[in-house]
Structure formats: C-alpha cells, structure tokens
Amino acid sequence: MAEQAFLLKGFLQGNDAALITALKDITTQSVFRHMITPGGYEMSVAMTNCGARGWVTDRRGYRYDALDPLSNASWPAMPALFKQLAEAAARQTGFPHFTPDACLINRYAPGAKLSLHQDRDEQDFSQPIVSFSLGLPATFDFGGLDRKSPVTPWLLEHGDVVVWGGESRLFYHGIRPLKKGSHSLPGNCRINLPFRRAY
C-alpha cells in the first residue's frame, strides 16, 4: 500500500466465526455507543473496546482510559485469539515485536464513515497499527503525512487485515460511507478491529 504499509487479503479466513463469537461476549459487557468528539459531534461509527486500555472521546478530548466511562469498570479482557492473530499479522509484515494492549471495536452501519485522521494518541509511534475487517466491504482511503496528501482507495473485504507502521505510521486514513448489504456473520454491518500499543 505504501512504505511499511500492507494489505493482507483474507488473513482472517478460518478464524472469522470465532472472532465474531468472542465479539458478542465483549459487547455484552461493554456495549456499543456513539461517542462524542471534543467539538460536540456524535460519531456515526458505534464503538467499544477490549484490552487493558480503551480509546475514548468526549468533550475533554481523545485519549486512552483503563475504565469504560459508561460502567466505570475495566474494559473486557482482550481474547487470546485477537492478540495471536494481530501479532501474527504484524510479524508477517516486518513488525516482530508488536504486542497490542488496546483493541478498539468499530461497528459501521450503512452510511457510517470515518473522516481522514491520524492515529496519534499512542505513546510509541514505533509500534504499528493492525486493523481487522469483518462483514460488509468498505473503501479505505490511505493518504500521507498531510491531510491534503493524495489518497489511494483500497477495497477491504471480510477477513482482510491492514498493517501500517514505520514511515507510514502517521499517514492519514479513513473509511468512505458504508454501502448497504448483508453478511452471513455480522449481518448488515462492518466490524473493524484496530489493534494498537497505547502504552
């Protein structure tokens, strides 16, 4: 995709059903919610987290927090399968020391999108981002270090994994509005699991 940025087509095939089952357990403990940006806008993507830290946004800003603000309890533990697959994808793409401590869980309904942004709330930018795609296909825009850099659209389908780090770690990226459809596992939505090393 770019220097030190890779698309692994179908990497999750064979593990997809187990991932969806584990997700149901997580989202029973920490439900999906539409978070509010610091500017007061409700995000179209529904989110929750698992792992030692969870990414949150509200009027106070973007950050990682050890507690779910809705329950004031710890986020659900990251399933072993999640961690194993994220680390395997990282190793395959040249990042052998990646160990995630945070997994954001994004649910895209038709029409939901994510504007171009950088992942920069983590403390160590030497660690890559490993992003799983499940369910409906989506168009992933991958740009450069500047918001105005040209973007390249990539089709992300069920079972695909994107890994980016090194020179591409702070590249802008986003998801175009999701088109309507249905999938046999998660149904009429797309599930995205970006794994990060927050601390």
Results as ranks from 00 to 15, higher is better:
50 C>H: 09
50 C>V: 12
51 G>W: 00
53 R>G: 06
55 W>F: 12
57 T>S: 13
58 D>C: 05
58 D>H: 08
59 R>G: 15
61 G>E: 03
63 R>C: 11
64 Y>C: 04
65 D>R: 09
66 A>W: 00
68 D>C: 14
69 P>Y: 11
70 L>G: 09
72 N>W: 08
72 N>S: 14
80 A>H: 11
81 L>D: 02
82 F>R: 06
82 F>D: 00
86 A>F: 01
90 A>L: 03
93 T>N: 01
94 G>W: 01
96 P>A: 03
96 P>T: 05
97 H>N: 15
97 H>S: 13
97 H>K: 11
98 F>N: 02
102 A>L: 06
102 A>T: 15
102 A>H: 12
103 C>N: 08
103 C>I: 10
106 N>C: 05
106 N>H: 04
106 N>T: 03
107 R>I: 02
107 R>T: 07
109 A>M: 14
109 A>D: 14
109 A>R: 12
110 P>S: 12
113 K>F: 15
114 L>A: 07
114 L>V: 09
115 S>I: 10
117 H>D: 04
121 D>R: 07
123 Q>T: 13
124 D>K: 07
127 Q>W: 10
130 V>M: 04
131 S>C: 08
134 L>F: 06
137 P>L: 11
137 P>A: 14
141 D>G: 15
142 F>S: 00
145 L>S: 15
146 D>I: 04
147 R>P: 00
147 R>V: 15
